[in-house]
Design a protein around this nucleic acid. Structure first.
Lengths: 344, 344
DNA sequence: CCGGTGCCTGCAAAGGTTTGCAGCGAAGTT
DNA sequence: AACTTCGCTGCAAACCTTTGCAGGCACCGG
């Protein structure tokens, strides 16, 4: 069928092992022989068969990348960065979409295990115990989840949620709704934990709405609930939900930011393009993708690495947040200057 | 290391070939034996090594999927659909991002060739000759490009561009700008061809601006050029450019659709969420992804299939298009009824 | 001239699986 | 009773590489 090491050996008059060494250990072969072999290989268009190589070396030069939903705009930048970084190291990437289903996650990891050097699981929905078990079957790096003993890169959404809620209380909001994310999401729990604590510290009331699917629709459908709860500000699990929510609020007759302030999380490209432009917590997705790949590739080198990499997040204030009914902080342009405002 | 067919054979007291047959040709093995083998396999957690299998059968159960830019919102729905369809047939998907670079396309196809059953190239940027050559090295299906002898699924953007331009001339626009896409894009040429012809038939003048990178920025930066050309309507190569253009127009003091009408192509999710909502030509991306995978998988079965599948497109009229300075068609609500309007 | 050293190359096993062929026992045929 | 047929299983080669080991050769020092 295609050209093998054998053909090259025949063409250049050497043994197949010499051809093999020409590619995998060039310093072991005579420069003269080497160049002849390379010339023949070039001419025949020889490419080593990685599957055959993997069979004996155990290294596949492939990586598995598992995400909950490729169509969720949060993931593509991460996938792109990971793919680019992987290819820089001569690795290829399998991408699998689990449709937010933990059972599919497990199945896919197992199915991929034999043909990759490791798997990257982004925002997993399965429980920690299962992840720990899987990490015994194949090197794993997890994005957006912290588990002792499992290498991970996490975006510091707790910090982000804190900044977001502080922003809202500073603007004078005292009744805040939190649109939580999908069941099983570590990120969602982190946000909730941090937002709750921050709200309490800011003397605001925070009510949780959810769990919801992390999509536009997930936000759209709960607009009524948010209004009924009397919230004047909302922190959403992600930008997509925030944008959907804004649509829903408009339909219900509420205006953003005049009646309700909305903050998202992720800073997907979309958020700069909607009107009003979304105030949101920017997460470094591309950096996370790169870092996760690096971590996975380093994984094999030394002993089982177990590092947790934390990436900072940042509040980006745009047009979807405005003053609330309560006292505003001094810094706020149109606000009333009230001493004893919320500390930052 | 991991559990092999050998371990299962030992555990169940049969020869490895019997184990192999239990999985790949169950009807050849005694039901009693079979169930015993299956039980052992289950207990040991055996999974066939696909690389080893591929070595001998030549089928890898992998597919390569090559796109110009994962972060371009046009692609994720296609990738998602392709991945889902592939996994339905027990195949896994390699995804590669070429950054719009034809050289990378070639390199990636070659690198992937040995470890996939076929490659799907979406909106390729390389020239036809190269594609033809590559298709001799590995089964290929091309999306959004027509080449004789190469199986393809194409969205009928020519039809879409015609509908779009007719829509604009019907609204009374007589000076239309076309933002063309990246160099090497078949789609861009098709659009240009069809738009030019349709404009001529509608007695409108069409000026081409470009080529441009197919991104938000690609549209943003040419806003001035569009205004300088005196265009009252624009058809953009894709939605992303259209949205960027609208931003640019606003910055330059022109309003959409009051001063300039804008039509995009693709109907990405984003287009429903911007304000004004974008009038655009909807392309069936998910269907294309599914169809392309099906075509690739069918490819091997019979002789070299060479079918070209055409998918219909559809004009979705939203809020970014309005009346132009010329006479409007009767159907237009606020328009002036002028006989002799453009035929559809 | 001999032993030693070092560079390069060939040999063959190994990795996990599939598959054509042959063998075996039991059942069926004549 | 001999022979065929059939269903099932084992054997071994093959797929393409990598790699430890050993052999060949030239060169060096003594």
């Amino acid at each position: 069928m295609s050209v093998t090491i054998r053909d090259v050996a025949r063409a250049s008059g050497v043994h197949i092992s010499t051809v093999s060494r020409t590619f995998s250990a060039p310093h072991l072969v005579n420069p003269h022989t080497r160049s002849r072999v390379l010339a023949c290989a070039e001419e025949l268009g020889y490419r080593p068969n990685r599957a055959a190589r993997a069979l004996i070396t155990g290294r596949t030069y492939n990586i598995g990348l598992i995400v909950a939903d490729i169509a969720n705009p949060f993931f593509p930048p991460l996938i792109k960065a990971a793919e680019s970084q992987a290819r820089k190291h001569d690795h290829h990437i399998f991408v699998a979409d689990t449709n937010e289903d933990p059972a599919v996650e497990e199945e896919v990891v197992r199915a991929l295990a034999k043909q990759v050097d490791g798997v990257l699981i982004c925002s997993p929905r399965m429980n920690n115990a299962l992840i720990e078990q899987l990490s015994r079957e194949v090197p794993l790096v997890v994005v957006n989840r912290q588990i002792a003993g499992i290498p991970a890169v996490v975006m510091d959404v707790a910090q982000g949620a804190r900044l977001a809620v502080e922003h809202l209380t500073t603007l004078g909001h005292r009744t805040i709704a939190l649109l939580s994310g999908p069941r099983g999401s570590w990120t969602s729990r982190e946000i909730r934990r941090s937002a709750t604590a921050t709200a309490r510290a800011g003397h605001a009331e925070l009510t949780v709405v959810g769990p919801n699917p992390p999509t536009e629709l997930g936000g759209l459908t709960v607009a009524e609930d948010v209004l009924r709860a009397g919230a004047t500000a909302v922190l959403a699990y992600n930008d997509l939900m925030a944008i959907g929510l804004i649509e829903g609020l408009f339909s219900a007759g509420a205006r953003v930011p005049e009646d309700v302030s909305v903050v998202g999380i992720d800073d997907i490209m979309l958020s700069r393009l909607t009107r009003p432009k979304l105030t949101t917590v920017a997460t470094p997705t591309a950096a996370a993708g790169r870092a996760a790949v690096d971590m996975l590739l380093a994984h094999g080198d030394d002993r089982r690495s177990t590092a947790h990499l934390h990436l900072q997040t940042e509040l980006v204030i745009r047009d979807s947040t405005g003053n609330g009914p309560g006292p505003h902080s001094p810094a706020d342009p149109g606000g009333v200057n009230v001493p004893g405002g919320v500390a930052s």
